[in-house]
Design a binder for these strands. Sequence first.
DNA 1: GTCTATATATGGATAGAC
DNA 2: GTCTATCCATATATAGAC
Lengths: 197, 197
Amino acid sequence: MDAVKENTRQIIIDSSIKLFAQFGYANVSVRDIADAVGIKPASLYYHFDNKQTLYLASIKESFSLKASGLSEILQSQEPAEIRLKNYIYKFTALASEDEPFCRLIQREMLDGDEQRMQYLAEKVFKDQFDALDLLVIEINPQCDSHMSAISILSLVLYHLETTPIRYFLKGHKKQHNQAEFIAQHVFNLLMNGLLKS
Amino acid sequence: MDAVKENTRQIIIDSSIKLFAQFGYANVSVRDIADAVGIKPASLYYHFDNKQTLYLASIKESFSLKASGLSEILQSQEPAEIRLKNYIYKFTALASEDEPFCRLIQREMLDGDEQRMQYLAEKVFKDQFDALDLLVIEINPQCDSHMSAISILSLVLYHLETTPIRYFLKGHKKQHNQAEFIAQHVFNLLMNGLLKS
DNA sequence: GTCTATATATGGATAGAC
DNA sequence: GTCTATCCATATATAGAC
């Protein structure tokens, strides 16, 4: 942010976050990143040993950037169902705003590298997930909170993830892509199930 | 299956399904497929115009094998809720059995190539999705059937997709990875919401 | 229908000048 | 720190012999 001299290394990371998230590792060339930054490919190799190193640094950076208006909501003094509602709306909004980041995580999940999974679970998502798990227990102490927490996340993320294909599927409307509409649908489904609209 | 002379085209499709599903489109070369089949890359171009055509044919082929069992369930004479229950159990089982294929579809969604999305939606998934949509309407005519159908699919698929990371998250148990357990959780959630276990 | 040989493009990475 | 120039590997795809 320093107007005089911004860190080139940081600009490279910022650019590659966007590119890797949008197109995936194999579909982003070192040339693409260099072009986005405005330097030549050879110059990248002054800052990073190779493409893989750059990729990992980008993921780490992306993780550490995005954090927690969500924690506030989960730790507020509202009744549990209100907290869940607020959480879903906020989470949907955040995920919707930062679609590239969501894709990056999805891609990591697909690759399924065990060491990286463990790192993500224990160093990045742990606090968030645990707090959501506790909220679910508070709402229904009888339920399998682990499964329910995953279900909540799945409903939000999958609606966002399927945006490109839902456009071509029966019954699609513009509003189905709006974060608030998705959040409303998900919260209602969680409260009432399919039977009650 | 003919012992004397099996269709080379079919062997190519079978081989590429496995490769694309496991590694993703960009990570599988025409050479890889040719090697797996046991022919030279040039020979592939006698059977298919290009890599993309081969890829789409593979997905279509792979999906239609699974879809027939699901269609039966959706078109049976059972009450709507029983059909939904049977559908979820069968769908979960199928998806669980062919994890590579599920990953392939997920990758497709992440790539979000518009032409490929349209092809998949209209030529591959259409009939299945429409039938599920109708079932949802039957169960609750008031609801947004498009959103609800996506929600059903999301619940099943995301539990499977997150298998590698859930292992490291709070409250995980072995049974959370079993198809039948997931189906039970999903059906219960859809019927009763989060509040009732 | 499958082969060999090759055209053509692209991608990761390095050497050395400035 | 960034550049130009280039190497080398790999990828898609084609031409033409068999």
